[in-house]
C-alpha cells in the first residue's frame, strides 16, 4: 500500500505542468477569444511524447496508468488548455489498438459515447454548436456511438481531474486579486470573509483529488463519487471566485470567466451530476453493497 506517486512519475507530472503553464498563457487564450490565429501546440505534444503517456511501450508510448494521466489532466485544467489533448491522449489513445498515428500527430480522433453530445471540431464531424466557453469550438456528434465503458470511465475521471485543476486555478487567481485589490485602505484578502470563502474551496479541492486518484486506479463506484465531488467542488470554486472578484469577475476584463466557463462545460461532459448521482444511489441505497470501514481499498 503506497497511495502516492513515485519520484519519476512526479517529475513527469511537473514537466507536463510546466509545459502547459508556459505555453497556454493568458495571452494565448485572449488571442483565441479575439478570433486571432494562434500556434497549434500539437507538434509539441508529439515532440514531448505526451500523446503517448498511456500507450504501451511497444507502441512507442510511456505505458503510464490512468492515475498519472489524471494528474496531467489536472495540470491541463489548471492552465485552461483548450486543445483537445486530454481527449486524445487519455481516451482515444488507450482505447486504440494501433495508436501510432495518434501519437505521431498524423491523426486526431474522439471516441464517441452516449455520455458526450459535443466534441471538439478537430476530432470528428458534426454540426457546429455554440458553447458559452469562447475557447471551445464544438460540433454535435451525429451517427452511432461506440458504446464503451472504458471511454466513459476514462472520460469521467479525466474530466473530474480537469475540474480540480480549474478549481485550483480559480482559487489562485482569486488570491492574487484579493492581495491586489484594496478597499477600506486594505487588501480585501485581509478580510476574514474573503479568507474563509477561499479556505473552504481549498479544503474541498484537497478532499476531492484523492478520490479521483482512487477512481483512476480502482474504477467502480469511486468513478461516480469522484465526478460528483469534482462537479460540486468546481461549481463552488467558480461561484466563490466570481464573488471574490466582485464586479470585475462579471466581465471579460479579467480572465476568470475562461476557467469558470470551462467548469460549466466539463460538469456536463462524460456524465453529468444526475447521471453519476443515480449510479451512486443504485449502489448505496438500493444495492446490497458492503459499506462501512475497510471496504474502500479492498
Amino acid at each position: 500500500m503506497d497511495f502516492s506517486f513515485t519520484t519519476d512519475q512526479q517529475d513527469l507530472i511537473d514537466a507536463a505542468k510546466d509545459f502547459f503553464d508556459g505555453e497556454n498563457t493568458f495571452e494565448r487564450m485572449r488571442s483565441i477569444v479575439k478570433g486571432q490565429k494562434v500556434e497549434s501546440l500539437w507538434p509539441q505534444f508529439v515532440e514531448l511524447g505526451l500523446l503517448g503517456v498511456m500507450a504501451h511501450e511497444k507502441d512507442g508510448g510511456m505505458g503510464q496508468p490512468l492515475v498519472l494521466m489524471a494528474a496531467i489532466a489536472e495540470a491541463a485544467g489548471y492552465s485552461g488548455l483548450p486543445d483537445p489533448f486530454i481527449e486524445v491522449a487519455g481516451i482515444t489513445v488507450p482505447l486504440s489498438a494501433s495508436p501510432e498515428k495518434l501519437i505521431s500527430g498524423s491523426s486526431q480522433l474522439a471516441v464517441l459515447s452516449e455520455l458526450r453530445k459535443y466534441i471538439d471540431h478537430n476530432l470528428g464531424d458534426g454540426t457546429a454548436v455554440k458553447s458559452i466557453d469562447p475557447l471551445r469550438n464544438l460540433v454535435k456528434v451525429e451517427g452511432t456511438c461506440d458504446q464503451s465503458d472504458k471511454a466513459n470511465y476514462h472520460g469521467a475521471v479525466l474530466s473530474a481531474a480537469q475540474l480540480i485543476g480549474l478549481s485550483q486555478r480559480m482559487v489562485d487567481i482569486s488570491v492574487d486579486y484579493a492581495k491586489d485589490r484594496h478597499q477600506f485602505s486594505k487588501p480585501i484578502g485581509s478580510f476574514q470573509a474573503i479568507k474563509h470563502h477561499l479556505a473552504n474551496v481549498y479544503t474541498q479541492i484537497e478532499f476531492t483529488r484523492p478520490i479521483i486518484q482512487l477512481a483512476a486506479i480502482k474504477g467502480g463506484i469511486n468513478v461516480h463519487s469522484a465526478k460528483v465531488s469534482a462537479i460540486d467542488t468546481a461549481m463552488m470554486a467558480a461561484e466563490t471566485a466570481i464573488q471574490v472578484h466582485g464586479g470585475m469577475g462579471y466581465t471579460y476584463e479579467v480572465d476568470l470567466h475562461l476557467f469558470m466557463k470551462r467548469v460549466w462545460a466539463l460538469c456536463g461532459e462524460w456524465g453529468d451530476r444526475n447521471y453519476h448521482m443515480k449510479k451512486i444511489e443504485e449502489y448505496v441505497l438500493q444495492g446490497d453493497a458492503k459499506l462501512g470501514p475497510g471496504n474502500t481499498f479492498n
Binding site: E206, T208, L214, V228, I280, L291, F297
Partner: peptide, 21 residues
C-alpha cells in the same frame, strides 16, 4: 445520505494518501 457516504469515502481516500506521504 449519499452525500454523507461519498464524503466519508473522500475522507478515507485522502487519509490513505496523507499516510502514504
Amino acid at each position: 445520505v449519499i452525500q454523507a457516504w461519498v464524503d466519508t469515502e473522500r475522507f478515507c481516500a485522502a487519509t490513505y494518501q496523507l499516510v502514504s506521504r
